[in-house]
Design a protein around this nucleic acid. Structure first.
Lengths: 336, 336
DNA sequence: GGCGTGCATGCTCATATGAGCAGATGGCCG
DNA sequence: CGGCCATCTGCTCATATGAGCATGCACGCC
């Protein structure tokens, strides 16, 4: 064998074969005739070309997904399921795609939840909007954390839950309480209230949860809503907070950043999320990578809906090898 | 039928099917099971996805070619053959790729020419360099236009022909004459010379020609070589010259731009190129689109080796429809 | 309401393709 | 120089796939 030369010759042959096969739709037999090799060799050349990444197959569609990343995420973090959408350049677009994907997931998720616990926020609202009317039948919805009653945009939290329920022909049960109370006593009192307590109880019994997460910075809805001030956030960040999950600020370790604040936060606890069968996290965009990592690495969600970049960021964690070694016989471009 | 909805649903299905088929290497049958449709529907979904361009298959390799464009070029301009390489961003790279492609073509061209007529220039020199040693056996080479004896880089023209011949184990016959003579009489005299005349005669008998073309501007090798001055070029451009073919400046109409100058130009005539069985034009890069068009539309070459952009420029000619309707039953991705 | 008409569907069958295997080839080392 | 090992090659056979066809279904037209 003449290593260098014949290898190069083979590569060129592989390119020609690939062109004829994929661009001209010729059969391997025909290609064999053209290139003067047997059809088996053509098959092998094509296999090589795919392995070496000479042939690039891409699925271009806004609704496309990244199944390999989904598989890797599920495996690495022990998720029940993952949905990864290709990241568009534009961040607005990205949020829209992730929300759509979450809506798609919800529509096709089985078993259909009898009662769905939802949080609120910009992302969740988009998910609600992306759901088609009649996406399911008789799915009731319950809010799992305090609403945004002080908000400049009143009713958003309520509107999200109601929209999701309406579109499934179900009832929405709202949590009539602020997200964070100023005094612990007030929080306890409200919690003890029949209505609020009843809703919380109902929320604990939901068969699935759908939520997003916020970043620990002043762009947070909590600041917008007046529950927290910029200095509050600064203090949280100092204590290592990376973001909030259903109103509760957590650190990269997955622990509560400020127990005192957390005690004044009304709604489902993190443990309920962790222990639920189905808790769907919808999250996308660069700023949220840190929160997403905290949530995912600490088992707070069982289903992750996100974008490609976030997925890669999660997988590119430093501590372990992030060798992509798919379980399938699929393309092996990284061999080069 | 519910047009919009079911069409969209089909599209989404098609995307999912494509992902599973091309990214996960599942069989259509398995995909059918997953998506709850029959395997035949999966096949049809995939076909649709390919048609609609949802699935994009690309062959990424410096030596890749654009067979669809080649086919279109051949059909439109009645070429015997065409070679189109994907255009790299970089212009230097582009020239290299085109030259390589020409070398490849020469190597695999059948019947092997007994005697190959070549011109000279930067492009041709690159082709010569790209040819592998021993690319053929006993192919003799003859120059078809006057050499660059006044050049600042003496011997380039000769080196090109000699290199091509050497690498094929053949003899090179050089044309010992300037490209353009100052006086018609001198030209006639030289032409009449036994040696020169003999070479020209030999050139007329070549079984194939390989040449490139120059642009009608001051970057021309003719200016470099001192055969023409900047004002000469300006005058040629005024007369509509778009470039030169083996030393002869032509207009977009394929006619000689300046008959007086042409009469003083020594070498093969355009008619000989036009009437030859095999005349291979190697040309690439934006500046040369106009010359390329003049040559190709007026039958001066039977084989065209070029880059993708030039190919498209030639096909996107305004006067006629450039509907791509290949004669084969091949892929129809270009319908988009 | 009856009846084409056009399209999607599920099938049969021929063909294309990939897995796995036995033999050939050619370099390499003793 | 001969044997050994690794690789490549061409094959058989099972499987995957696409072409073509009959059917079913919904719609529009009379």
């Amino acid at each position: 064998m003449v290593p260098a030369e014949s290898a190069a010759a083979n590569e060129l042959l592989a390119v020609r074969a690939a062109e004829l096969y994929y661009e001209e739709n010729k059969t391997q037999d025909e290609i064999g005739a053209i290139l003067r090799v047997t059809r088996w060799k053509v098959g092998r050349l094509l296999a090589q070309a795919r392995e070496r990444g000479i042939i690039r197959i891409e699925i271009v569609h806004p609704r496309a997904r990244r199944l390999a990343l989904e598989r890797d995420l599920s495996a690495r973090f022990g998720l029940k399921d993952a949905v990864v959408v290709p990241a568009p350049a534009d961040d607005v677009e990205l949020q829209a795609r992730v929300s759509e994907a979450a809506a798609d997931y919800l529509v096709s998720h089985r078993p259909v939840p009898r009662l769905l616990g939802v949080s609120w926020g910009r992302t969740l609202h988009q998910v609600a909007e992306a759901l088609p009317s009649g996406w399911s039948t008789a799915v009731n919805v319950v809010q799992i954390n305090g609403g945004v009653s002080l908000s400049k945009r009143p009713g958003t939290a309520a509107a999200t839950a109601v929209m999701i329920a309406q579109k499934a022909g179900g009832q929405a049960t709202l949590l009539p309480s602020p997200a964070i109370l100023e005094r612990l006593e007030t929080k306890k009192a409200i919690e003890g209230d029949r209505t609020v307590g009843g809703v919380l109880g109902m929320a604990r019994g939901a068969s699935a949860y759908l939520y997003s997460a916020g970043v620990a910075d002043t762009s947070s809805v909590h600041v917008d809503s007046g529950y927290l001030t910029a200095p509050d956030i600064a203090r949280l960040v100092e204590r290592g907070a990376v973001g909030d999950v259903i109103g509760r600020y957590i650190t990269a370790d997955g622990t509560i950043a400020d127990p005192e604040l957390d005690a004044r936060t009304l709604g489902l606890g993190l443990e309920e999320l962790r222990n639920s069968t189905t808790s769907i996290l919808v999250i996308g965009g660069e700023p949220k990578h840190a929160v997403a990592r905290a949530i995912v690495t600490h088992g707070l969600c069982s289903v992750l809906v996100t974008d490609e970049h976030t997925a890669r960021a999660l997988l590119d964690d430093t501590d372990s090898d992030h060798d992509l070694e798919p379980a399938t016989t699929a393309s092996r471009e990284d061999a080069s």
